[in-house]
């Protein structure tokens, strides 16, 4: 998700090509080619510029609607059925497509394994879905920033937050009985405040506080690795 402007000038983008399986978009105004995943201008008059990222979440529709009942939703195109046909099985179909970039021999992840990528202070880390699903919240540190990666009540939505509040890193846990009965809540070990999935404390000493959100990029491993060659991979140390 990018700000569609540079230097105060609005840009209108079109799909125009593909670069090692990440698409290239061209703006109508200057004809510059932009890489979708990095927001970087790779060819043309604006080469070297970067679009500003716009913070976004990747959530299930039910979770989003519960949080933002007043929101608006993109309506499907009515003038063509191609998208419907394409979209019905796009996820399974895409998972079967070949990958053209070379995987490193030591890579344990499959090229099309889905990872959640974090980029903080120049450090990159990929969280495969499996450990996040096994242990949530997952507590870690990237680029010196203590953070948590947490799976929502729907078991599909994932968010990441900085865990530092008032200069101290809190420890968080999801109360087992919160899942299923009643509203989903996280608790911090220090004050026992209750936190919802948006990262806001809704009860307890810290009520009203908001954890700082960290952008997560859901991506295929091969693509994340290509644009973050120095990335670390979170390893779940099973006993």
């Amino acid at each position: 998700m990018w700000e569609a402007a540079t230097d105060g000038r609005r840009l209108k983008f079109h799909l125009t090509g593909i670069n090692n399986q990440n698409f290239i978009m061209a703006d109508e105004e200057t004809g510059t080619w932009w890489q979708q995943v990095s927001g970087e201008a790779i060819h043309g008059p604006l080469k070297g510029r970067r679009l500003n990222g716009v913070f976004h979440d990747e959530l299930t529709f039910a979770t989003w609607r519960r949080e933002r009942p007043q929101g608006r939703v993109l309506r499907p195109s009515e003038d063509n059925d191609a998208w419907r046909k394409f979209s019905e099985r796009w996820e399974e179909q895409t998972a079967k497509l070949p990958v053209v970039t070379q995987a490193a021999a030591q890579d344990k992840l499959a090229p099309r394994a889905v990872v959640l990528g974090v980029n903080l202070n120049g450090a990159a880390k990929a969280y495969p879905l499996e450990p996040v699903e096994r242990q949530s919240p997952l507590v870690d540190k990237v680029g010196g920033v203590p953070l948590l990666v947490v799976l929502g009540e729907d078991k599909k939505s994932v968010r990441a937050f900085e865990t530092t509040v008032d200069g101290r890193a809190l420890e968080f846990y999801v109360k087992a009985d919160a899942v299923g009965g009643g509203a989903w809540r996280m608790f911090d070990g220090e004050t026992q405040s209750e936190w919802d999935f948006t990262g806001r404390a809704v009860a307890g000493a810290l009520a009203g506080r908001q954890l700082k959100k960290i952008p997560l990029l859901k991506d295929y491993w091969f693509d994340w690795k290509l644009y973050n060659p120095q990335t670390l991979v979170y390893a779940f140390n099973a006993p």
């Binding site: 799909l15 698409f23 990747e58 007043q70 929101g71 608006r72 394409f86 979209s87 796009w90 996820e91």
Partner: peptide
């Protein structure tokens, strides 16, 4: 607040 269904984005890009 806006939601863009991934199914639609994956097609239109």
């Amino acid at each position: 607040a806006v939601a863009y269904p991934v199914r639609q984005l994956a097609y239109h890009h």
